[in-house]
Design a protein around this nucleic acid. Structure first.
Lengths: 336, 336
DNA sequence: CGTTTTCGTGAAATCGCTTTCACGAGAAAT
DNA sequence: ATTTCTCGTGAAAGCGATTTCACGAAAACG
């Protein structure tokens, strides 16, 4: 038998106080439209008076809906240090709470389709799931087949019909290049992230599109594939400067590489932004606290989270959901 | 009636297959010690064979235990950008999952004792709670009174009997000073964080203790109270350099201020660490990616999370829990 | 004005697990 | 040998919601 909670208010009391049946109490509390207005009022009043709060476990057992949305983080690597996921989870949590739903955090390696997390998700212990940092599509394909509402953060590799949220990476890169051109530089290089990553790819696409559209004489020799690391930024910047005598700017796919590039430029005896301008991506802590202040493309990370949560909620309501692309904003500081 | 999950395995099936009662199945699955070994074996076998997984909502309803631990983040400020809480939550989640518990994330302003979060916690929807970034003790006092197992991250202001986890802030500061002395500097200044914060206070305590113990001629004029910001680091460093002609080092209570201080030093025409050494605290992304690389005191953030989770679990088992202080480690890079 | 629908409502049956309680068998005590 | 304790076990009563189902009244129909 249950460990009795100290005098918990139940439907029984509400029903008695408001003179209706428990069934009707349930209907009112779940917003069933076809209940007499008087009764709704009576129940609502009783609920207020008694300070009733629904017992989620009981509701979950009876209805099969847990009121929980899983936020799944594939913890195979850098999760520990990246402020990104904190911000996005925050956004998610906020929206869910406003809708009486809770955020269940699942941090674990997702490689195994039979991992505890995978099992958990498949067992209906949550009403939906939001995936951050997805590396493989296998698991979510399976979950989608089981009709678990899903939203993925970041553009998936495959063109599967997963709903996803993402920043307008291409647009952000475009804006960066446009700003460089606006401020008079035309000889611009690009250090990309790991190109197996869709975000890196999109940022490069944006860079290329801008170059083409703005008529810049940019060749493949202006693009170097990095791996998001400071060292990659440093090394590629060094090479690029050698390759292109009058290089005027470098657009980097993240802030860390941008800082590496800046160091390289300075060590080569040139100035930033005087000789070579640098723009990063993410507008991270790093960009905000570097010296000189790093011009960077900001993503609305919390916004991504909020959007993802809204999509899950819509999906729960049975609505068709569409992927969302959120705009990026160029934050101009000192390096460009 | 419940929305029937597709053929969910229940106790009834296990009981039938293993030839015992449902009550015994429950006992076995909950580790009741006084069940006959043969029966345990039979049940275990049946569970494996059927691939049974416990329905948490049902268990929660019957037992009053939800299997959920809340991680409460007082979201009144910088949570969005701080990588700290991601790391700590990660550590928590990891330990909880290993113990069949789940992490429920609650992000909301905690000022109001009647906020949704507060209500939620008081209603027994979770088995325990871990508080990150606590600003006021009011709420947790109340929760503690209700016997909700609690762990707080960071040393509480009041000397209330809350179990908490924290880094050895004083020890970290001490190690920083010791390193400075070991490398020949004796004229050392300190830029603290906001001193209403216990971590800032402890770091200052460590600094003072080290100075005293190592016999340094440090006065109050060597200490400046900052507010964790880059600007504070910059401004205080500037003033400190003016005040102390042959200042040899500055210990800052976080990395951001350290970076500000470095900028100030360089702009004053001095070199780091040649003229003045700088040490930060946190060993954040910033420290790792700055140029020159920032020497900083590292906290074991994930460790704090794991420790907090273990404490909650112990508390759930009815054990007496003791606060934990985790050691810090000085990470030596280029600035000191 | 009789008949068929529609519609709101309450009684009652779950949802799947936990826990109390009583019972019988063997151990221990007398 | 009889009585008292232990101890493991199963039957059954919940935990607190949701939802089906049937029923009576009102609305719509012919």
């Amino acid at each position: 038998m249950a460990a009795k909670q100290k005098n918990r208010v139940t439907y029984a009391e509400i029903a008695k106080l408001s003179g209706v049946s428990e069934a009707t109490v349930s209907r009112v509390l779940n917003g069933d439209p076809k209940v007499d207005a008087d009764r709704i009022a009576a129940v609502t009043k009783a609920v207020d008076k008694l300070g009733y709060k629904k017992h989620r476990a009981a509701a979950a057992l009876a209805s099969g809906r847990t009121g929980l949305i899983a936020v799944v983080i594939d913890d195979d690597l850098s999760v520990f240090q990246d402020p990104f996921w904190g911000a996005i989870t925050n956004g998610i949590s906020r929206v869910l709470m406003d809708n009486e739903m809770q955020t269940l955090l699942l941090v674990a390696p997702l490689d195994d389709v039979d991992s505890p997390v995978a099992n958990y998700l498949q067992r209906g212990e949550v009403d939906g799931a939001i995936f951050l940092q997805l590396h493989k599509d296998t698991l979510i394909k399976r979950l989608a087949k089981q009709k678990l509402p899903l939203v993925v953060n970041g553009t998936p590799h495959t063109s599967n019909p997963f709903a996803y949220v993402d920043s307008d990476n291409a647009g952000g890169a475009y804006a960066a290049v446009r700003h460089l051109v606006d401020t008079g530089r035309t000889n611009i290089a690009c250090i990309t992230g790991d190109l197996t990553n869709t975000a890196a790819e999109q940022r490069l696409d944006g860079f290329n599109a801008a170059c083409k559209e703005l008529g810049l004489p940019i060749t493949k020799a202006h693009v170097a594939e990095g791996d998001w690391s400071r060292e990659a930024g440093f090394n590629h910047a060094t090479k690029l400067m050698k390759k292109h005598e009058n290089l005027q700017a470098i657009f980097c796919s993240n802030d860390v590489m941008a800082l590496g590039a800046i160091t390289a430029i300075q060590e080569a005896g040139k100035s930033v932004p005087g000789d070579i301008a640098v723009i990063g991506f993410d507008d991270s802590y790093l960009a905000q606290n570097s010296h000189p202040g790093l011009t960077s493309v900001r993503q609305d990370i919390a916004g991504l989270g909020m959007e993802a949560a809204k999509m899950i909620l819509a999906s729960l309501r049975g609505e068709e959901v569409h992927s969302e692309i959120l705009p990026c904003e160029l934050v101009i500081r000192e390096t460009a």
